[in-house]
Protein backbone atom coordinates (compact mmCIF):
# COMPACT_ATOMS: atom_id res chain seq x y z
CA UNK A 1 0.00 0.00 0.00
CA UNK A 2 1.44 3.39 -0.93
CA UNK A 3 2.24 5.91 1.75
CA UNK A 4 1.37 9.56 2.08
CA UNK A 5 4.95 10.33 1.08
CA UNK A 6 4.62 8.27 -2.09
CA UNK A 7 1.37 9.99 -3.03
CA UNK A 8 2.91 13.40 -2.39
CA UNK A 9 5.84 12.52 -4.64
CA UNK A 10 3.55 11.17 -7.37
CA UNK A 11 1.51 14.34 -7.23
CA UNK A 12 4.57 16.53 -7.60
CA UNK A 13 5.37 14.63 -10.81
CA UNK A 14 1.84 15.01 -12.21
CA UNK A 15 1.71 18.75 -12.61
CA UNK A 16 -1.35 18.90 -10.37
CA UNK A 17 -1.71 20.62 -7.04
CA UNK A 18 -3.69 19.30 -4.08
CA UNK A 19 -3.67 20.28 -0.44
CA UNK A 20 -2.17 17.82 2.05
CA UNK A 21 -5.71 17.15 3.29
CA UNK A 22 -6.85 16.13 -0.20
CA UNK A 23 -3.80 13.91 -0.66
CA UNK A 24 -4.67 12.25 2.63
CA UNK A 25 -8.23 11.69 1.45
CA UNK A 26 -6.98 10.25 -1.83
CA UNK A 27 -4.77 7.86 0.10
CA UNK A 28 -7.75 6.76 2.19
CA UNK A 29 -9.84 6.17 -0.95
CA UNK A 30 -7.13 4.07 -2.55
CA UNK A 31 -6.50 2.21 0.71
CA UNK A 32 -10.14 1.17 0.68
CA UNK A 33 -9.60 -0.38 -2.76
CA UNK A 34 -6.26 -1.98 -1.89
CA UNK A 35 -7.61 -5.33 -0.77
CA UNK A 36 -8.92 -6.25 -4.21
CA UNK A 37 -6.24 -4.55 -6.27
CA UNK A 38 -3.72 -7.44 -6.29
CA UNK A 39 -6.38 -9.83 -7.66
CA UNK A 40 -7.34 -7.33 -10.34
CA UNK A 41 -3.72 -6.78 -11.27
CA UNK A 42 -3.06 -10.53 -11.39
CA UNK A 43 -5.28 -11.11 -14.41
CA UNK A 44 -3.32 -11.74 -17.60
CA UNK A 45 -4.71 -10.67 -20.94
CA UNK A 46 -3.67 -11.57 -24.48
CA UNK A 47 -1.57 -9.21 -26.49
CA UNK A 48 -3.55 -8.96 -29.71
CA UNK A 49 -7.11 -9.93 -28.87
CA UNK A 50 -9.77 -8.94 -26.41
CA UNK A 51 -8.79 -5.35 -25.93
CA UNK A 52 -11.96 -3.35 -25.66
CA UNK A 53 -10.19 -0.07 -25.27
CA UNK A 54 -9.29 2.05 -27.08
CA UNK A 55 -11.82 0.44 -29.40
CA UNK A 56 -12.71 3.66 -31.14
CA UNK A 57 -9.10 4.52 -31.81
CA UNK A 58 -8.51 0.99 -33.06
CA UNK A 59 -11.41 1.22 -35.44
CA UNK A 60 -10.13 4.52 -36.73
CA UNK A 61 -6.79 2.88 -37.46
CA UNK A 62 -8.56 -0.09 -39.07
CA UNK A 63 -10.42 2.33 -41.31
CA UNK A 64 -7.19 3.82 -42.53
CA UNK A 65 -7.53 6.99 -40.48
CA UNK A 66 -11.01 7.84 -41.80
CA UNK A 67 -13.67 8.60 -39.23
CA UNK A 68 -16.85 6.58 -39.59
Amino acid sequence: MPSLETFTALLADSGLQLSPQRVGEALAVHSALAEELPALRAHRFPFLTGWPEPAVAGQWLENGGISA
Binding site: L16, R22, A26, L27, L40, R41, P52, E53
Partner: peptide
Protein backbone atom coordinates in the same frame (compact mmCIF):
# COMPACT_ATOMS: atom_id res chain seq x y z
CA UNK B 1 -11.24 21.86 -5.91
CA UNK B 2 -11.54 23.55 -2.52
CA UNK B 3 -14.74 25.25 -3.73
CA UNK B 4 -16.32 21.99 -4.75
CA UNK B 5 -18.60 19.83 -2.61
CA UNK B 6 -16.92 17.34 -0.40
CA UNK B 7 -17.28 14.04 -2.22
CA UNK B 8 -16.59 15.29 -5.73
CA UNK B 9 -13.46 16.92 -4.33
CA UNK B 10 -12.39 13.54 -2.95
CA UNK B 11 -13.17 11.94 -6.31
CA UNK B 12 -11.01 14.53 -8.07
CA UNK B 13 -8.24 14.00 -5.54
CA UNK B 14 -8.26 10.22 -6.09
CA UNK B 15 -7.86 10.55 -9.85
CA UNK B 16 -4.17 11.40 -10.13
CA UNK B 17 -3.24 8.22 -8.24
CA UNK B 18 -4.83 5.76 -10.65
CA UNK B 19 -1.95 4.49 -12.74
CA UNK B 20 -2.33 4.05 -16.47
CA UNK B 21 -1.62 0.34 -16.04
CA UNK B 22 -4.38 -0.04 -13.43
CA UNK B 23 -6.86 1.91 -15.54
CA UNK B 24 -6.17 -0.30 -18.56
CA UNK B 25 -6.32 -3.42 -16.40
CA UNK B 26 -9.69 -2.27 -15.09
CA UNK B 27 -10.98 -1.76 -18.62
CA UNK B 28 -9.72 -5.15 -19.74
CA UNK B 29 -11.20 -6.94 -16.72
CA UNK B 30 -14.70 -5.81 -17.73
Amino acid sequence: IEDRDEMIAVTYAAGPFVSAADYLQALRYR
